[in-house]
Every structure is written in structure tokens, then in C-alpha cells.
Amino acid sequence: MIALNVNGKAYQVDVEPDVPLLWVIREQLKLTGTKFGCGEGLCGACTVHVNGEPARSCITPVGDVAGKKIVTIEGIPAGHAVKKAWLAEEVSQCGYCQPGQVMSAVALLKKHPKPTDGDIDSAMSGNICRCGTYPRIRTAIHRAAGAKKKGGKP
């Protein structure tokens, strides 16, 4: 049994410690907002927060995060500035990568409340979007930061 703290709730899961956190969240806890995209930490669809830091849950063995504070997309409050900005800028298309994008953006804004385009590039380039919502993600992050900057970088 492994003790997990996910979105402020305590869970006991009966899995091997080498199982990636992603599959425990999705299959044991039934929190399916966190997505499987590549399985190798290359696309960011599975991004969650572990003790406040963004982590790729598809390559994080569940045994390594026992007792740590895990937050998934389901743990981000509805009124969060990032979610509001995502709606205002109409970011989502197919939507599959967006939970991971939101998790990366929330972590970025915690570290850099007024991120530059360079900060956005370095924090967000690990998250792939095949629908190409990047220009809107950039604008939405600026909006969430209160800058309401329009458009992308020149």
C-alpha cells in the first residue's frame, strides 16, 4: 500500500512502486483529467504538481511521491486566473493537452507572476499542442498575469 495525497485528499493505493503516477491517478483514483500523451516525458500532457513543482507523471514512479503533495487538473479551482484566462482567450481546440498546459502555466505564474515571453518559452515548451494553440496560450498567460498583453511576441 502506498499513501498518496492528491488534491488534498488522502488515498491508499495497492500498486507496485514502479508504476508511473499517471496510471495510478487515472486508473486507481479515476481522475482522468491528467492525460497520457507520450509516456516518456516529452509532451507534457500528463503534467501534475508535486510539492508545487510541475512534474511529468508518466515518468514519475508512484513510489517516489508517496506522502508528497500532488495536485492534478481537478485540484485547480474553477475561478483560478489561468482557467479564466484560458476561457477568455478561447485557447482550447481538441483540448487533450490543455490540462497539462494549464498545470504548467499555473506553476509558471507561481514562480514568475509577470512572466516575459522568454519565461513562457522556457516554462511551456515542454508541453506539445498538436492543434497549435500556442499563440493563444501565450496571450492567456499574459492575461492571467494581469498584463492583458495582446498577440504574441514580435
Partner: peptide, 21 residues
């Protein structure tokens, strides 16, 4: 007009094939 599917796509509730239980 704002998309009807946007809210579900940012709170993790949008159901994709891989999410079916």
C-alpha cells in the same frame, strides 16, 4: 462566440475515448 466545450476541456471533465471507464 465562445466555444461550448471549453469549460470541460480545462477542468479535466471532457471525456475522450481513453478516459472511458
Amino acid at each position: 462566440r465562445h466555444r461550448l466545450d471549453s469549460p470541460a476541456k480545462i477542468d479535466g471533465t471532457a471525456l475522450f475515448g481513453i478516459d472511458v471507464q
